[in-house]
Simulated scan of single mutants.
Amino acid sequence: MMCLRRASVACCFTALLVASASPVHADPDTPGWGFGGDDGTNQQADTDADGTVSVEVGGVVFDRSKNGGGERAGALTSSTSWSPPPCWYAPKYTPEQLQKYLESIWNAESTGHEWDTEQREKYNADDEKKGFNKDKSGKGYWWGAYYDDGYPPGWDECDTEYFWVDEGDPPPADVPNAVTPQVLAELAYAEIQVPGTEVTLAPAEATKVNLPTWAWLDAAEFKPVSVTASVPVLGIEATATAEPVSLEIDPGTKDAEVYPASGVCEINDGRIGEPYTKGKADRTPPCGVKYLRSSGDDTFPLQATVTWTIDWTGSGGAGGDLPDGEFGAVQDVVVQEIQAVNR
């Protein structure tokens, strides 16, 4: 199996893995697989069965202890065209680890003699003491690309081969998405889970034509949530925090009126909407809907979407805002005609 001469190390490693049938991260069910692994230490490569691939040193670690939860929880969608990085660069190998990793590829003779020769020269592999920067062991790392589980769409965006960064120095300015507090904040954004957006309605089982229906969300669930992303070997981290600010209601039919008229219920005193209680029948709900016709034998698909603002703080006093996120759900609403009895 032959890679192109200018192919990246990642490409050639892929060829090796296919040939060996012992891939690292080959099973999506493996803990830590992909973007936001279950064990909180994703992006850390496991060792191959024969021990030829060393554990990567600089993966992003996520702390999700303050994340949202619940059966209907889900990830935010940016309200703009912005999206978190599909790939990024971080410390990946010590000199000894990179030597072990690359030599396993070269020894497999799957990448071609010419490419192997170029790579050996690049990493000064023939110098036993200085090759792979072994004379700098403990004073820096070889950096490489990490990917979320959405690649190959992000594959072409991080095609820079391994590069050395001395301990305490910033990565090269011309390398996109090298980990910084802001990049970590963007990765943390992608890990945020927010509670489901099924609103409570009154009347609950079925509402009536021309009768205002009150809508609200559980104030205990709709509070700020956050995720922290860090790279321990660099001592940097960032926390992205999502805070609910409004609920937008789409009644699912043009034959309806919403409260307020904009259909957007702003958060007030830590809650969205107001629970209905006895004695409020003659009041207009601060958040709700009034259907003007029956749903017949069907239902109307009410769409409830919560907007969350995102801000972040990070190492060295860094911080700022990221694009708002949205999360919504559809629930079926039965609307009946009011039955009148004539005597």
Score class of each variant (00 low, 15 high):
residue 82 W to E: 03
residue 89 Y to L: 10
residue 26 A to L: 14
residue 158 C to E: 03
residue 149 D to F: 14
residue 231 V to H: 00
residue 333 V to L: 01
residue 273 G to P: 08
residue 247 L to T: 04
residue 301 P to C: 02
residue 259 Y to F: 15
residue 132 F to W: 15
residue 299 T to Y: 07
residue 59 G to N: 06
residue 244 P to I: 07
residue 335 V to D: 00
residue 204 A to K: 00
residue 68 G to H: 03
residue 145 A to L: 07
residue 266 E to V: 13
residue 159 D to Q: 14
residue 221 E to W: 08
residue 16 L to R: 12
residue 242 A to R: 01
residue 34 G to D: 05
residue 143 W to V: 05
residue 233 V to H: 00
residue 319 G to C: 13
residue 167 E to M: 08
residue 124 N to P: 10
residue 229 A to S: 04
residue 264 V to Y: 07
residue 233 V to M: 02
residue 295 S to R: 00
residue 38 D to R: 13
residue 135 D to G: 03
residue 295 S to L: 02
residue 276 Y to C: 10
residue 7 A to R: 06
residue 281 A to C: 08
residue 307 T to G: 05
residue 310 I to N: 03
residue 94 T to R: 08
residue 225 V to L: 07
residue 110 S to H: 13
residue 211 L to F: 05
residue 9 V to M: 12
residue 19 A to N: 11
residue 99 Q to W: 12
residue 85 P to D: 10
residue 319 G to Y: 10
residue 17 L to A: 11
residue 107 N to L: 14
residue 244 P to N: 08
residue 232 P to H: 02
residue 67 N to V: 09
residue 48 D to I: 00
residue 171 P to M: 06
residue 282 D to R: 12
residue 212 P to N: 08
residue 23 P to H: 06
residue 195 P to N: 04
residue 343 R to E: 12
residue 239 T to Y: 05
residue 165 V to E: 04
residue 232 P to L: 00
residue 176 P to T: 05
residue 49 A to L: 01
residue 328 G to V: 00
residue 65 S to E: 10
residue 227 V to E: 03
residue 109 E to G: 07
residue 323 P to W: 01
residue 109 E to Q: 15
residue 78 S to M: 01
residue 274 E to P: 11
residue 191 E to S: 11
residue 303 Q to F: 05
residue 19 A to S: 11
residue 202 A to G: 07
residue 198 E to P: 01
residue 253 T to E: 04
residue 129 K to L: 09
residue 159 D to N: 14
residue 62 F to G: 02
residue 95 P to W: 09
residue 86 P to T: 10
residue 212 P to M: 03
residue 341 V to L: 11
residue 161 E to C: 08
residue 153 P to H: 14
residue 85 P to R: 08
residue 231 V to A: 04
residue 67 N to E: 12
residue 243 E to G: 12
residue 308 W to G: 02
residue 17 L to I: 10
residue 279 G to N: 07
residue 254 K to G: 14
residue 9 V to A: 12
residue 136 K to W: 05
residue 206 A to W: 04
residue 213 T to L: 03
residue 161 E to R: 12
residue 203 P to W: 01
residue 215 A to Y: 01
residue 269 D to F: 11
residue 26 A to F: 11
residue 233 V to T: 05
residue 40 G to D: 02
residue 300 F to T: 02
residue 134 K to A: 04
residue 31 P to Q: 00
residue 23 P to N: 09
residue 30 T to R: 13
residue 17 L to M: 15
residue 215 A to E: 02
residue 297 D to N: 15
residue 112 G to I: 08
residue 223 K to G: 10
residue 171 P to K: 03
residue 101 Y to L: 11
residue 282 D to I: 09
residue 24 V to L: 10
residue 137 S to F: 06
residue 326 E to A: 09
residue 214 W to M: 09
residue 102 L to D: 10
residue 52 T to S: 15
residue 188 A to L: 09
residue 63 D to I: 02
residue 297 D to E: 13
residue 206 A to G: 01
residue 169 D to W: 04
residue 4 L to Y: 14
residue 65 S to Q: 07
residue 52 T to I: 06
residue 219 A to E: 14
residue 57 V to G: 01
residue 9 V to K: 06
residue 226 S to G: 13
residue 151 Y to F: 14
residue 184 L to C: 07
residue 265 C to N: 07
residue 142 W to Q: 03
residue 286 P to W: 05
residue 124 N to H: 13
residue 272 I to G: 06
residue 201 L to G: 02
residue 184 L to A: 09
